[in-house]
Amino acid sequence: MFEVMNAGLETAIQDYPGRVGYWNQGFPPSGPMDHWSFRLANVLVGNEPGDAALECQFTGPELRFHEDTVVAVTGGDMQPHIDGEPIELWRSYAVKAGQTLKLSYAKTGARGYIAVAGAIRTEPWLGSRATFHKAGVGGFEGRAIQAGQQIPTGDASGGTPDMVVIPEARPELPSDKRWEIEVVAGPNDDWLDEAGVRTFLEADWKLSAKSDRTGYRLEGPGDRLTFADKAINKRPEHGSEPSNIIDQGYPNGAINLAGLTPIILVKDGPSMGGFINPFTVPTSGFWKLGQVRPGEVIRFRAISVDEAQRLAREMTRICSRESLRPA
C-alpha cells in the first residue's frame, strides 16, 4: 500500500492492454498512452509487463510507501527523487516503509510511469484496473488519484531492485520537437484523393493544447485536404460534408477527420462515429503519442499492415526481462 501525498496534474492507475471486450458498448480500452515505457517500468520491478501501475501526465505525484518495496520510474523525465535524493529513470530501487517518491514536472516528454513491485491491486472493473477518468470508471474510485488516498498493492517480495533497462531498449525522444509517427492507410483512405493523401503525409501537424486522453487535435492544412469522388457524390444518410460517413466503428489510434480537423482517437477515445478515418496509428507508433507535447510537430510516415505488425512484435520482445541487466 502507498499513500498519495500529492497527486500531480492527472495521475491515474492504468494496465495494459486495458479494458478490452466492451468496444460494442462504447467503453474505450484506456491503459497507458506510452505502452513502451509503461511495460518496461513493470518489468524493472519484477511485475508482468501489463500489470497495473501509474501514468503521470506532465506533472507527477508524491507518494509515501507503507511497506518495503521496489519502485521504478520510466518515460518522460519528471525528475524523480526518493527522500529528496535524485534517482535515475529506467532503474529499479528498493524503498523502505516510510520513504517518499516525488516526481516533478516533465523536463522531457509528457508522461512518466511509476511501477511498484507486486503491482497496484485495486478492484478490477469490467475486467481491467485501467482508469477512464472522464467517465468515472476503473482505477481508484473511477478517477485520477487524489491526495490522501491509500492505494493497495500486491505482495512485493518478488521485487527486483537494482536493475536497469539497457540503453538500446529505451524509447528515444526527439531533441528538436519534431516527431515522425508511423501510420497505416485505412480504413477510409480511399475517401481522400491522391493529392489529399499526399497533403496529409507531407504536412507538418502541430499538436494542439486542446488534446487529452480522448483525442489529439492536430493543427495544420486540414482545409487543403482534397477528396475522392465517393466523398462528394454519396447518399444523403452519410451527411453532406466530404468527411461525413454513415456512423461506423473506430479503430483505437485512428486519425479521425472531424469536419476538416484531424483528431487522433487515443486511449479514452470514442468507439464509433460518423467521420472518416483515412489513417490509423498502429501499436508501434502509438507510444510516441504518450510523449509528444502540445506545440510539437508531427509528420506521418505510411507503413504496411505487415510492417506495423512486425514492429509491434519487436516492441513486445523489447518490453521484457531480455532488456534488463543488473545496475
Binding site: 496534474l9 506532465f58 506533472t59 516533478s104 514536472y105 516533465a106 509528457a110 493544447a209 507535447r293 502540445p294 506545440g295
Partner: peptide
C-alpha cells in the same frame, strides 16, 4: 529589490 522570473511548469498555450 530583486528580479523574479515566473517559469512555466507545463507545456501548452499561454
Amino acid at each position: 529589490m530583486a528580479e523574479h522570473t515566473v517559469e512555466a511548469q507545463l507545456p501548452g498555450v499561454f
